[in-house]
Computed example of a mutant assay.
Amino acid sequence: MPADHSSSTTPSGITPSSIHTTINHLITALVTIRDPTGTFLLPLPDGRIIDTKGWHDWEWTHGIGLYGIWQYYTLTRNPAHLALIEDWFAARFAAGGTTKNINTMAVFLTLAYVYEETKNPVYLPWLDSWAEWAYYDLPRTRYGGMQHITYLEENRGQLWDDTLMMTVLPLAKIGLVLGRKRYVEEAKRQFLLHVRYLGDVRTGLFFHGWEFNADVEGKDGGKGGVGGHHFAEARWARGNSWVTVAIPEFLELLREGNAEDPVLESFLQGTLREQCEALRPLQDPKTGLWRTLLDVSEEEGSYLEASATAGFAFGVLKGLRKRDLVGPEREKLEEMAVRAVKGVLANVSEEGELLNTSFGTGMGRDLQHYKDIPVTSMPYGQAMAIMALVEYARRFI
């Protein structure tokens, strides 16, 4: 896109120049956010301290941050943004990497795209070793689901909707870039497993997590059966938004990588459509945002949350643009997404920070857990806002 962005307005009244100005503010804040109080540091038992808020560390927060910058780079082809991404990887690799888990795998979605473009041989062994770990060595739940292991928790037998974004998409993209079909097929299986166990057929939304009961005996004498639970039965907004983001991203990967699967595509398109239609009546009419617990009211303590709103806006707009969302509801879904984009824009501060972003959220055993999560600017909030605005630009500008 040319540097001298038009000042003409889009159908929703947002000017192209304002979108690019806001995105650049968001990127600047993304790479300069600090945690001077240490409130959001993550101490590990081995003595390491992971800075989840600042830019110069390695966690899922940075993985999503990198992907937001990559999304904007693909729109503008500004070499400064590619350099920003590559500099992050160079520094992290020079420091020796980090522990492999579901969340730290997130950065490799961006790296796979960067390697595909640059063919920098330095990146190849990192992509290879981490993907092999995810395929072979990442702990699995019953029936082979990816266990949501993190820096601090093993989470034995647990499936989280976050996993689709943090590990499944990177594995699929690496498989396509390196020509390893087994990774792509495993990613397909993971999508099916996560939809099966996390989807709420009553509402069309998704629960945050599922845990298999460890004491259910199978007919073969081993642990089997489908006994388990959805913890607090939380239909958590950002967790739902990972699904909204991941489905159209995954379907695009399969198409572009000549790995189409018509049956899976139809299934995931239907899943996405059902979820998006369920989101419509839950959007706050005044702000365009959704609440951190989608179906819990403000009076009951569920606050408005901007990062999930950005994720929903991105996924819906991309689903519409790629024709993954079809049918008579398309116009209403587009109106919903545009209201969400306006809500995101209204929550970007003068300093370029996305306000009303909930902090990283572990699995809750009760709904109060989600209501108590603090609000603070984070790299993923910045990136999700960038992604929403980039997708808005692709659709309307």
Results as ranks from 00 to 15, higher is better:
I247Q: 08
H194C: 05
E233Y: 15
G218H: 10
L251E: 02
H208S: 04
G257F: 08
A246Q: 08
N155M: 02
V177E: 00
W236Y: 13
V184L: 00
P248Y: 13
R189S: 10
L198S: 05
L205G: 07
L127E: 00
G257I: 06
G209F: 00
A234R: 07
A246V: 14
W126H: 12
H194N: 14
D161L: 13
M166V: 02
L178T: 15
R196T: 15
P248M: 14
V243N: 06
Q158D: 01
A172T: 07
K188D: 11
D137S: 13
G227V: 08
P248W: 13
G228T: 12
G204W: 05
A187Y: 06
E211H: 09
V245Q: 08
P121W: 04
L178E: 10
P262H: 10
L193Y: 04
F207I: 08
N213Q: 09
T167E: 08
W242A: 06
T244D: 11
W242E: 11
V122I: 12
R142T: 02
E153H: 10
V243I: 15
E185T: 03
V243C: 11
Y136M: 12
L171D: 05
I149S: 03
W130N: 02
G157H: 05
H208F: 05
R235L: 15
T167G: 04
W210G: 03
K219Q: 08
P262C: 11
L253H: 09
V168I: 14
G224W: 08
E211R: 15
K173N: 10
E132C: 04
D161V: 14
G228C: 09
M165Y: 10
Q190A: 06
L152D: 01
Y151H: 13
V226H: 14
L164D: 04
R235V: 13
Q147D: 01
G204R: 06
D137K: 09
R238T: 08
R196G: 04
T150I: 01
L169W: 03
W236H: 10
L152M: 07
G199H: 14
E249D: 12
M166C: 02
K181A: 07
T244V: 15
R156I: 12
G157K: 02
A237E: 15
Y135N: 02
M166P: 03
G179T: 12
R180L: 09
G228P: 10
V245R: 05
E217V: 15
E185Y: 00
R140K: 14
K173G: 01
E256T: 11
G179F: 11
E185C: 00
P262Q: 08
L171P: 06
D137A: 11
E260Y: 02
